[in-house]
């Protein structure tokens, strides 16, 4: 499948976060020069990695799987072959998650151009991206299994994706938020992804980072289990 679409998909997934990074970094960076001791464009650049992973994983999973399930009914065809629902969900989540994780590297490369110093620990960034991507791809599968039309997905986008994306420490540090909102943000998988990416770029905090990895793994496992459950309810009657 990917062979057929890689040009359009890759373009969208790479160009959007790069534009976001450049716009915020340069535009907003004029007002705020440093955040948490880091030049703002480098702060946003590392945050945009997480955004790229989120958008690429969750949107492709939501729209592609709704199309394949409901309109093209390819999943139906697969289930007539020796393939089960959990295998379909696993396959989609692994593929879309891995792809999203790799797309996440693009904003980092742009941030290099704006003076982000390369560090050896940055090789971990794609791994964090893939782990996050798998979770968000599974979440996208879950959402698509909860709706019957594309319209239904707009609730998800405004009600879930946008808050996840805004309150994750991507564009501003969470330290300024009221305590209750900061506690809520701890439940946001994207927050854990953002923290890990920044630590890969500016210095690891082994203890805290293991907790972030565990949180992302737990999120992926939960999203996968729920996605299998809801998708099965749609496909096997």
């Amino acid at each position: 499948m990917f062979r057929y679409y890689w040009r359009t998909r890759t373009f969208a997934a790479v160009v959007e976060p790069v534009i976001m990074l450049v716009a915020f970094g340069i535009g907003f960076g004029k007002l705020v020069s440093h955040v948490a001791g880091i030049p703002y464009i480098q702060f946003v650049g590392t945050g945009a990695v997480a955004t790229a992973v989120l958008f690429s994983a969750v949107f492709s999973a939501m729209f592609d799987s709704l199309y394949k399930r409901r309109y093209q009914r390819v999943y139906d065809a697969m289930l007539a072959a020796p393939v089960d629902v959990d295998e379909i969900v696993t396959g989609e989540a692994l593929f879309l998650g891995t792809r999203a994780g790799l797309y996440g590297i693009a904003p980092l490369l742009v941030a290099f151009c704006f003076g982000l110093p390369p560090k050896p620990t940055m090789v971990l960034v794609p791994l964090v991206g893939v782990l996050t991507g798998i979770g968000f791809a599974a979440l996208g599968m879950l959402f698509s299994a909860m709706v019957s039309t594309y319209d239904g997905l707009s609730y998800v986008i405004s009600g879930v994706i946008t808050p996840l994306f805004l309150v994750a420490g991507t564009f501003f540090p969470l330290t300024r938020l009221p305590d209750w909102l900061r506690s809520l943000a701890l439940l946001n998988p994207l927050y854990h992804c953002v923290e890990l990416i920044r630590h890969c770029a500016f210095g690891l905090h082994p203890g805290a980072d293991l907790v972030h990895v565990a949180a992302l793994a737990a999120f992926a496992a939960l999203a996968w289990a729920l996605a299998v459950w809801r998708t099965r309810a749609r496909l096997v009657v």
Binding site: M1, Y4, K68, Q72, R73, V74, D76, A77, A80, A81, P82, D84
Partner: peptide
């Protein structure tokens, strides 16, 4: 699943991946 491995199914409505 074991049974499906040895049978072929042609559905009433097309569910080809037409792309």
């Amino acid at each position: 699943k074991l049974a499906r491995a040895r049978m072929g199914v042609c559905p009433q409505e097309s569910n080809l991946d037409v792309d």
